[in-house]
Nucleic acid binder design. Structure first.
Length: 615
DNA sequence: GCCGTTTTCGGCCCGACTGTTTTCAGTCG
């Protein structure tokens, strides 16, 4: 019996990327397009919304755009036998160390191979350490095609990689937004700056951000760049050009600034907002119409071709775009909200004028997951502010309802009767105040609870306790390492109580700290539709859970979503905007989200006992 | 090797920067 090794999406992507690199160094001209194809397939697998193993089992590998018959066949072989004969042939004759060197910034396939051959480093084990010794002893600078500067930059990349490890340290969206708004505010004080906007993954509201990219509209780029250098917190300048600058902050975060003339600012925004795949798709489409796109605008291509070279462009014929809207309109498309620009069907939808009308922050009428300082004697975190303060803050941001959902009392320290008495106490407090809150502020306050789903699927409060709650939120806070099947059953059982109406932070992921657990989401989502359960987008910056790709899948099946802040203090309530970003990335409209509904409609969904809301 | 709003054949994004080069290759976003 052969041992069965499972391959994650990341494993398969890495393999495909190595094959791409191998093709590139073996015979670049002959393999030019295979290189691109394998690289694209790698990215597609990396970004796939499903586990590649599941797709393989369901014989649906070809649903990934970029994976065709040939590569699908190779992946099939990989899962069946643990290796791919064709890949081994392509990789044969190349030193394994080459693929280690590819992990370094600034080193591509050609450079990696050259280093291996001229330094006689073959094996992958210890390759990076050996490279470091060669760099430190000045042996790289002497090689043909390398100099002192490239030796230094290789050493820098090595130190960066060996120090920080494989995982790139990415910022949370909330942190990146705060940092960028400081920089944007600073830039806007500069006289020559007409506009300044975030770019890249930050503008697309990805859950985590690598570098902070910023666009500036100006006719005097040199002056803006020189002023920008004075921004407090800049540690050193990485590179500087006529139209842009990259700098490292004291915190180690990198800022890339690009200055552009106002008359072409729209094309700049479009180009650097990306994503890379959105842009490639868009430009291929434009090429077919005889147009060429760039950050400077749109150029008409000359119809005649010159050999296999690309068609010549005449820069004088370039049309500049002051706004992004005009850029997209010129291509016969609707403007695409940045959050959607991931090449996941938004281009096709835009051409058909069929983009979703995305939910906005102002559509929210309430927050259903708040932790007040009411002492539930929980083993989890207690909130830090009073119910009164939460209500006042909710009124201030325009909410019409909210729900207090503190953690359940700890099971180990309480008997069933203790738990019931604590919840009785909470109910009587809310009951005492909710009518006066409603009269004074026109807001309804719901008495809920966030209840642990225990490993066997049982909820962590006695049955009798449900009588003292309007509804409950269920979630997982322990035993994350169950099998996919066990986890699925656990969640389904947890959700099956009639008062369990919301599944909170469904995957349990903590960005940068912990992967989400595996579960059969399709089965869970189907259950939620059938039994009218809502799935939460938890807006806490380190969670942003459900992730956007699953949000889109859930809503596509008809699941209702709720966007909650999971606030433990008043200031946390502001996090809700990040939840809205996730919803928008998941293509949600307001109607998909239950806390955009009126209280009447919401109360039907939550199956509230309306006798509790009339005096 | 992949793909289809002119296509199942004939294409495959675009430009900047760096470092090593005297005119360009490699890498990146």
């Amino acid at each position: 019996m052969k041992k069965t090794k499972t391959f994650t999406n990341a494993d398969v992507a890495k393999l495909l990327r190595n094959v791409s690199a191998a093709y590139q160094v073996k015979d670049e001209q002959a393999n030019r397009f295979k290189t691109i194809a394998y690289d694209r397939a790698a990215t597609a697998v990396e970004n796939a919304t499903s586990e590649i193993k599941d797709l393989w089992e369901e014989k649906k590998l070809n649903t990934i755009s970029g994976v065709g018959g040939s590569i699908a066949g190779h992946i099939d072989e990989l899962f069946k036998t643990g290796k791919v004969k064709h890949f081994q042939e392509v990789l044969s004759g190349l030193p394994k160390a080459m693929f280690e060197f590819l992990k370094l910034k600034g080193i591509g396939p050609k450079t990696a191979l050259k280093l291996c051959l001229s330094l006689r480093i073959k094996n992958s084990k210890g390759a990076l350490e050996r490279l470091k010794i060669k760099a430190r002893t000045g042996q790289i600078g002497k090689l043909a095609g390398f100099g002192k500067d490239s030796e230094k930059s290789i050493l820098n990349s090595l130190n960066e990689y060996l120090f920080s490890g494989e995982k790139e340290k990415r910022m949370l969206l909330s942190y990146a937004e705060e940092l960028s708004s400081e920089i944007l505010n600073y830039l806007r004080t500069i006289k020559e700056v007409k506009r300044a906007d975030p770019l890249g993954s930050l503008r697309r509201k990805c859950a985590t951000i690598g570098d902070i990219d910023i666009a500036v509209s100006t006719t005097k780029p040199d002056r803006v760049i020189n002023q920008f250098i004075k921004f407090p917190g800049i540690n050193r300048v990485l590179k500087k050009g006529k139209r842009g600058i990259s700098a490292l902050l004291d915190s180690g975060k990198q800022i890339d600034l690009i200055a552009h003339p106002p008359k072409a600012y729209g094309s700049l925004l479009q180009h650097f907002t990306g994503s890379k795949h959105h842009n490639i798709h868009l430009r291929e489409l434009a090429n077919k119409k005889g147009l060429s796109l760039s950050e400077y605008g749109i150029t008409k291509l000359n119809p005649e071709r010159t050999g296999n070279k690309t068609r010549k462009q005449d820069p004088k014929k370039r049309i500049a775009f002051e706004t992004e809207e005009n850029f997209y309109h010129f291509l016969g498309m609707d403007w695409i909200p940045p959050e959607l620009r991931e090449d996941q069907g938004e281009i096709e939808a835009s051409l058909k004028h069929d983009l979703p009308k995305l939910i906005q922050l102002k559509n929210l009428k309430g927050d259903l997951h708040l932790h007040s300082d009411f002492e539930t004697e929980t083993s989890h975190d207690l909130g830090q502010d009073t119910m009164d303060d939460f209500v006042k803050n909710a009124v201030k941001v325009g909410y019409r309802y909210l729900a207090f959902a503190e953690h359940n009392p700890s099971r180990s320290r309480h008997k069933d009767s203790d738990i019931i008495s604590i919840l009785k106490g909470k109910k009587s407090l809310v009951d005492k105040k909710k009518f006066s809150w409603n009269k004074s502020f026109n807001i309804w306050v719901l008495n809920a609870l966030e209840v642990d789903i225990r490993p066997d699927g049982e909820l962590a409060i006695p049955m009798k306790a449900f009588d003292y709650l309007d509804f409950v939120i269920v979630s997982i806070h322990s035993s994350f390492n169950l099998s996919r099947e066990e986890m699925t059953q656990r969640i389904l059982r947890g959700l099956s109580h009639p008062k369990a109406k919301i599944l909170a932070h469904p995957t349990g992921r903590l960005l940068g700290l912990r992967e989400g657990y595996e579960a059969d989401w399709k089965t869970i989502f189907d259950f939620c539709v059938k039994k009218e359960k809502a799935v939460e987008i938890n807006a806490y910056p380190r969670r942003l859970d459900l992730p956007d790709v699953l949000v889109r899948e859930a809503a596509g099946l008809g699941v209702k979503i709720v966007i909650n802040s999971d606030s433990h203090s008043l200031t946390d309530m502001d996090f809700i905007k990040h939840g809205v970003s996730v919803a928008r990335k998941g293509w949600l409209e307001a109607k998909n989200v239950i806390n955009t509904w009126t209280f009447t409609k919401l109360s039907r969904f939550l199956q509230l006992d309306l006798r509790n809301f009339s005096e």
